[in-house]
């Protein structure tokens, strides 16, 4: 539907949508054309299973794993972080907000914070040993790899010896920051180079745009 501002200014729905996209671009590292190109991606994802203009968890799962079914700890966390309003669906605005963090030019602090929230499964404000254990165990199961409990404990011990500097058995936000700055490869997944040339990846936005960057 049209927003109040556009109704009161008697703008057409098309112009209204352009105004909303322009507003979203203002508050993100994306240009208006890039937001429009991402809207093409959003439209495609949000109608893949339920055609309602919102991304449901199954649709995100389908896009990431080529199959909409099955429990996945990581997908649950990613979806939860995208879904700011916690209403079980991802709206376009939420999609842009979350993808902004993955932009190559997004501030590193935002990437560090987002990654922390991904790993803080129970949202306690700390990354705890059990959470790390749970994530490693989930990957082992997912990839059908076998690792002895002894080796798994050793890996987690070593990781905590390095990351948990006050030795209280959990990693705080501050400890996490120091740790990832020492191991920047851990933030590799937090940057999507595709976002730098999203207009080339989704050229169909050109048919809908009224704006030239």
């Amino acid at each position: 539907g049209q927003c109040f501002d556009c109704r009161s200014r008697r703008r057409s729905p098309q112009t209204c949508q352009q105004a909303n996209l322009a507003l979203l671009a203002l508050d993100s590292p994306f240009s208006v054309n890039e937001v429009e190109a991402l809207y093409e991606l959003f439209k495609k994802l949000s109608c893949s299973i339920i055609d309602d203009g919102l991304i449901h968890k199954e649709e995100l799962q389908l896009a990431l794993f080529q199959a909409p079914y099955g429990e996945n700890l990581f997908l649950d966390r990613v979806f939860d972080l995208f879904d700011e309003k916690k209403n079980g669906v991802i709206e376009f605005e939420e999609f842009i907000h979350a993808l902004s963090v993955f932009h190559p030019y997004a501030p590193i602090d935002e990437k560090i914070h987002f990654a922390f929230r991904l790993y803080d499964l129970r949202q306690t404000g700390f990354i705890e040993r059990e959470e790390v254990h749970q994530m490693v165990a989930a990957i082992l199961m997912e990839s059908e790899m076998i690792l002895s409990d002894e080796l798994l404990t050793m890996i987690i011990d070593k990781t905590f010896a390095d990351a948990d500097s006050d030795k209280d058995g959990k990693i705080s936000k501050e400890e996490w920051k120091v740790y990832v700055l020492k191991h920047p490869t851990l933030l590799k997944n937090m940057t999507l180079p595709y976002l730098k040339d999203v207009t080339t990846a989704f050229p169909s936005f050109v048919f809908n745009t009224e704006v030239e960057d």
């Binding site: 070593k158 997944n189 999507l192």
Partner: peptide, 25 residues
Amino acid sequence: KFFNAFEFISSMSSGFDLSSLFESK
């Protein structure tokens, strides 16, 4: 190879790799 739990998680979990959103276009 993986002596760091987070390195293992970030490089092995497909759910944390959003690049496939763009590859599936």
